[in-house]
Design a binder for these strands. Structure first.
Lengths: 203, 203
DNA sequence: GTCTATAATTAGATAGAC
DNA sequence: GTCTATCTAATTATAGAC
């Protein structure tokens, strides 16, 4: 039998549609602005299914945010293994290029992080402990290799400077278009942004 | 007569309390998350006064966001005049330092920008046309002076990279503390961040 | 599994007393 | 100007039919 039709497959597909729609809606409208009705409508699913598959709106948010971070980690891990033989500076530059490429097509990552990072609520604690910390440890390893004399706080400044510099232009793409005329989502703009950051962060 | 007691003064003070509380609440909780009841409670004012002084929640948001941008513009204009005699690179570095200092004590600026910059709603259009554009023109002038060969799109990349790199760490300060142990709001951390950015953006 | 219907809360905005 | 009380609409979550 095919991949369609079995109950397990149907479960998975419906759940996946809802998680994907939730990530987009939370990113577009904010946590409170994205109603479960709106999410269900985007997923072309019934509102009751959100309670059925997830216990609450909070749990749905965790599923949506967690999924994006997992995708990023997977992409970075894979790429970093491929360039493990290059010298430290080129590894760092490649990590920046990959990160920029990811946030360009997944601006939700940044928007969710900014919305919740300001408050000491449970969603933030969960995000830091479960998803962000492993990535930050990876960053420190790469960063420490090409800047051996850096302190712990040097890494923190560099991490947030890099993340912010890479993401903002894509997170506010409609604003950027209106303000500057540049469409940051175009392929050439993504590449230009990546090269700009690789050059200034790893001179 | 003193500054207290007159009706005009009372009006101004109450209005100001509400605008200030609104900026903090919108920043903390997002536009939809910040209820007018919550804002009134923070301002120690009655909820009905929000309708009395502002027509709607949207108008209140504009007053709050507009006020922050005006404060930033005032600070940058003043400082740029003071260093008008320095060479172009030092002017650019000083502008970065001032900008970092401002967003460190006003992380609302960045949070409001990120929340609305993603959607083509009326709030975003208003923010870009009324507040952001004059600041971007100033940025291009300073930027073009120390990088005379830069194109229009170069300015756009640099503008958003700088704004993001400067702001994120302060906008998610509680998250940064939990993740890295560094408190970005400390005086020394603000200075360190400013110098880090001044060095990498204006080598 | 997916649906409709609805209960319980909370939202922005308004009316009118003082 | 500031207050209380309230209207209408939208929210999350639940109950139960199919």
């Amino acid at each position: 039998m095919g991949t369609q039709g079995t109950r397990a497959e149907q479960r998975k597909q419906t759940r996946e549609r809802i998680v994907e729609a939730a990530a987009a809606a939370f990113s577009d409208l904010g946590y409170h602005g994205a109603s479960t009705r709106e999410i269900a409508a985007r997923a072309e699913a019934n509102q009751g299914l959100i309670t059925y598959y997830f216990r609450s709106k909070d749990e749905l948010w965790k599923a949506a945010a967690g999924r994006i971070f997992s995708q990023l980690k997977q992409r970075l891990d894979q790429r970093l293994e491929e360039v493990a033989d290059e010298d430290a500076r080129e590894q760092a530059r490649e990590a920046i290029r990959q990160f920029v490429g990811f946030v360009a097509s997944h601006p939700e990552l940044f928007r969710l992080m900014v919305e919740d990072g300001n408050q000491s609520n449970e969603r933030m604690h969960w995000l830091v402990d479960e998803r962000l910390r492993p990535m930050y440890e990876d960053f420190k390893r790469v960063h420490g290799r090409f800047l051996p004399n850096g302190s712990e706080s040097t890494s923190a400044h560099a991490f947030y400077a890099m993340a912010g510099a890479a993401s903002l232009i894509f997170a506010v793409a409609p604003e950027c278009r209106r303000l500057t005329g540049l469409d940051p989502t175009e392929r050439s703009a993504v590449q230009a942004h990546a090269e700009f950051l690789a050059r200034i962060f790893v001179p």
